[in-house]
Write a protein that binds this DNA or RNA. Structure first.
Lengths: 148, 148
DNA sequence: TATGCTTATTTATAATTATTATTAACTTGT
DNA sequence: ACAAGTTAATAATAATTATAAATAAGCATA
């Protein structure tokens, strides 16, 4: 699926927002970048193309996007609110060693996917977060062990 | 299960920490209170019994507890880091309307409970967060509809 | 049991950082 | 050109962390 600029524009308009230059660029970036950037990282990236952009605009825009459900806000660790333009059902893994964040594809182990109601509460969304030690850090550890 | 002060003390010592008055009281509170308080709420509560306690101590203590795995840190929304003294496997539900936070007991729908490895990454912990509209807010809405 | 010494812990203060509020300037469509 | 919405610059707020001084606890020695 190609996420071209026309598609981006359509998404923004469909949610009742005007497709301004800033909004188009920010959403385009969030759809293409898989690193789940913070508002500050988005700001730095946007300044390359829109040098006059302000942090306020970035915050306003991503907040609106998140409210409208155009992107997902990820609460992964203290002082780090990240944004994810990938709306497909997937999970997130944070490495306790290096702090890296990776997507985990749902493999049918989470049966909550289609749950609509629990204990009388209406469920709109489910997020699954994993923490542990990532592939790379495990390899590094094993390599370290050889010389101990 | 009674979480008495001796048990609290043992838990702290077993994790290599000295069972100071402040630490005992903070952990005792986190084990008894089910409201998942923020650091600030813990600070307010502790001042009732330890009027000289500082915020720094609260932050240091809960950070250490979370690092050692004595309590869980919950990242639920921006600007709100909450702490949970209940280490049993359970999930959390945040109401989009009123912001309330409730526990959700695991009902075997999350098969990730015992997963130890995904894509070569070592999994140490899994957290499931639900968002939606809580029982109370649903009732309020229905009541409101009657008069529309 | 008391005394000093050492280290860990707590406290008070200041600094930092992420985010939001405010308001003026700017765009865009009619 | 006008009106409405959007952006940008600045200031304000709030959560958290850093720093360093004060306190408390542990322990050996007398």
């Amino acid at each position: 699926m190609i996420t071209n600029i026309e598609h981006i524009k359509k998404t923004i308009e469909e949610h009742g927002l005007k497709p301004t230059h800033q909004r188009l660029k920010i959403l385009e970036y969030l759809k293409e970048d898989i690193s789940h950037p913070t508002a500050d990282q988005i700001y730095s990236e946007m300044r390359k193309e829109i040098p006059t952009i302000s942090k306020t605009t970035v915050y306003n825009t991503v907040n609106m996007f998140a409210e409208k459900g155009i992107v997902n806000a990820l609460f992964l660790s203290k002082n780090e609110l990240r944004y994810d333009g990938d709306l497909s059902f997937h999970h997130h893994f944070v490495c306790e060693e290096c702090g890296s964040l990776n997507d985990i594809q749902d493999d049918e182990n989470c049966k909550y996917r289609d749950v609509k109601m629990i204990d009388g509460n209406q469920i709109n969304d489910v997020s699954v977060y994993f923490t542990g030690i990532c592939k790379k850090c495990l390899a590094k550890k094993r390599k370290g062990d050889e010389y101990e």
